[in-house]
């Protein structure tokens, strides 16, 4: 359908011309949304399209952010090295964790990601000398250009656009199609000679890498890190975003991230019970609209569904 192809471009054009007319607060809000949108899309790459029950994705986000911050704060290494090191460290962590996780399937996979992710969280939480422990690290010395909110806005938007394009191309490539095949029918995929474990591990590392990029962007916007970045509740929040937007749609997680981040900042100013609101949203969503907003729209208007039945019962098998 033509309209569906055009909408992302229109969105991008609008976002590009917006900054001069937006108040500072909204620039900051949108920049934060871009960061989390990238994180959520990277999770959905393995959760929605890979069918892997990744329960602790925030770990890679945190590792990327912490690596970047520590290198800038405690070593004389140039900025560019730190920027590259963040995502690479995240990808390496993903390789280590994924190495053990891809050996098991379904719920066991999820449990292993949770256990090993908590291990990383505990290390960062406790290693105060390096990570600042519970307080985190503040005043990360990013280059001065990033002190302007407008620069941060354009940088996050550009990186988000490029990363989404790359992830999209990966999904359309033979690798991506094979990944979806292993999600839809693991047994058959294996019998036609696909090495499921290796495919899943590669997808896991790719997702970790992009989550690491999101982590670096986060530091560029916030200039601080804290252990809550890789807490388990953060991971759950990203999963909610993916579900809200639609697990089987490519832009769903970004939309979900936009809605949740926006609501959390808005509702947060009226009441201290934001989590209650989030819980009720999630409850309604699960019971009424488990296919998500974009999944619902795709079903309704194209008549065939974004990626019909992709998250079937044996998806996690």
């Amino acid at each position: 359908m033509q309209l569906r192809r055009i909408i992302p471009w229109i969105m991008l054009a609008v976002l590009l011309v917006l900054p001069p007319v937006l108040p500072r607060y909204y620039l900051y809000l949108l920049a934060s949304i871009f960061v989390i949108a990238l994180l959520a899309t990277s999770l959905n790459f393995i959760l929605g399209f890979g069918g892997l029950l990744q329960l602790h994705h925030a770990v890679f986000f945190g590792v990327g952010a912490y690596t970047f911050s520590i290198l800038l704060l405690k070593t004389p290494l140039p900025f560019v090295v730190a920027v590259v090191a963040g995502p690479v460290a995240a990808a390496f962590t993903a390789l280590l964790i994924g190495w053990f996780c891809v050996r098991s399937r379904g719920l066991y996979f999820g449990m292993l990601t949770l256990a090993l992710g908590q291990l990383v969280w505990a290390v960062i939480f406790r290693w105060s000398a390096l990570t600042g422990g519970d307080d985190g690290l503040h005043g990360i010395p990013v280059p001065e250009v990033f002190n302007s909110l407008k620069t941060a806005y354009y940088v996050t938007l550009t990186v988000l656009t490029v990363c989404l394009a790359v992830l999209y191309l990966i999904l359309k490539s033979p690798f991506g199609l094979t990944l979806m095949a292993t999600r839809d029918n693991p047994v058959r995929s294996e019998s036609v000679g696909i090495n499921i474990r290796r495919h899943r591990l590669a997808a896991f590392v790719i997702a970790g890498f992009f989550a690491g990029i999101a982590g670096v962007l986060f530091v560029l916007v916030e200039k601080s890190v804290s252990p809550s970045l890789l807490s388990w509740s953060k991971s759950a929040e990203i999963m909610i975003m993916c579900l809200l937007g639609g697990l089987t749609t490519f832009y769903g997680p970004a939309l979900g991230a936009g809605i949740i981040v926006f609501l959390s900042m808005k509702v947060g100013t009226y009441t201290e019970y934001w989590l209650l609101v989030l819980g009720i949203i999630l409850l309604v969503l699960v019971l009424v609209l488990p296919q998500g907003i974009l999944g619902f729209l795709a079903e309704k208007y194209s008549g065939r569904g974004g990626d019909k039945g992709g998250w079937g019962k044996d998806a996690s098998g």
């Binding site: 959760l47 029950l53 379904g106 719920l107 999820g110 759950a236 999963m239 909610i240 579900l243 697990l247 019970y273 989590l275 209650l276 989030l278 819980g279 009720i280 999630l282 409850l283 699960v286 019971l287 488990p290 998250w311 079937g312 019962k313 998806a315 996690s316």
Partner: peptide
């Protein structure tokens, strides 16, 4: 799916917490 069931129970975590 597992994910849907899991997120349902997670919504209870958020609600009960508050």
């Amino acid at each position: 799916e597992h994910l849907i069931q899991m997120l349902l129970t997670y919504s209870l975590v958020l609600i009960f917490g508050d």
